[in-house]
Design a protein around this nucleic acid. Structure first.
Ligand SMILES: [Mn+2]
Ligand SMILES: [Mn+2]
Ligand SMILES: [Zn+2]
Ligand SMILES: [Zn+2]
Lengths: 138, 138
DNA sequence: ATAGTTAATGCACCTGGTTGCAATTATATT
DNA sequence: AATATAATTGCAACCAGGTGCATTAACTAT
């Protein structure tokens, strides 16, 4: 909803492609991979070029409407309404666990104190080994 | 030095390409990007294919001889002797700060307690804003 | 030293993502 | 409603990294 207004306020043109991409991100729950977004866009509007989609996603990120992050080599996007959160992904079984945005607070604090450096952690995907897998294949 | 032994112990063949790649990683101080490694290898041994280099690097990582991580979209590698450490990179001025491996301890602890999940943080490159840039462009 | 086995290499092609540029189109102005 | 203009699109080419497969070369056994 408000993404369109944000674009308008920034003086950006409201093309059908952009409207569609915004729609898709609004309708999604959780995050979408770039591949999913491309697929959904082209299903509803064949012929839209992937470069247009990537450019629009960058633009929406720049505007603060979506958050972009990395899952392995892929880019994933989620709507700003979802708020910041992180994921744990098990290297062995692939299971994912969601976790809150506050776990990096101590890191941010110590880096700020030691170096005066402000790090932003947004939608980090952390790889590791889950409880079950740790017990099982011991 | 010991990387060669590790490969030998694992029953892997000691090709000239592999020896060269190991040499380059030994001689380097700090980390190298894949691009640097490819350039150095091909300078000394023209014709070595990039897929060979990437495969060797994966192999060395698998064997625990080098650590692989990501700097932006690029892969970077450093020798295991360097030990685990992390970097802060300023989004505005590009300056980098090295920091120790212990800053993520609190995160590891809380994720372990809450979810029984063990996350490994190795050579993380964190983007943010440095002290100077924060003061300057306020 | 020779031959055989098996792993490693180079090649060609693929993937996700990015970029320069000419053609198109959304918006502002008349 | 028609025009002007600046932004956006599609395209084609590019990039880093990865993969399947036929050829080559490192080790093993003779
Ligand atoms: Mn998410
Ligand atoms: Mn480093
Ligand atoms: Zn698991
Ligand atoms: Zn800075």
């Amino acid at each position: 909803m408000s993404c369109i207004n944000t674009l308008k306020e920034k003086g950006l043109k409201l093309t059908p492609q952009r409207r569609l991409i915004v729609d898709i991100i609004h309708d999604a729950e959780g995050h979408l991979t770039a591949e999913e977004i491309i697929r959904y866009v082209q299903a509803r509007m064949p012929g839209v070029n992937k470069s247009t989609i990537y450019r629009t996603l960058d633009l929406l990120e720049e505007a603060g409407c979506v958050y972009k992050s990395e899952l392995g080599k892929e880019c994933i996007y989620h709507h700003e309404q979802e708020g910041h959160h992180h994921h744990l992904i098990c290297r062995r079984c692939g299971k994912t666990i969601d976790c809150g945005s506050d776990i990096f607070k101590p890191v941010q604090k110590s880096l700020s104190e030691k170096y005066g450096f402000r790090v932003e952690f947004k939608h980090i995907v952390m790889s590791g080994v889950c409880k079950q897998c740790r017990n099982t294949s011991k």
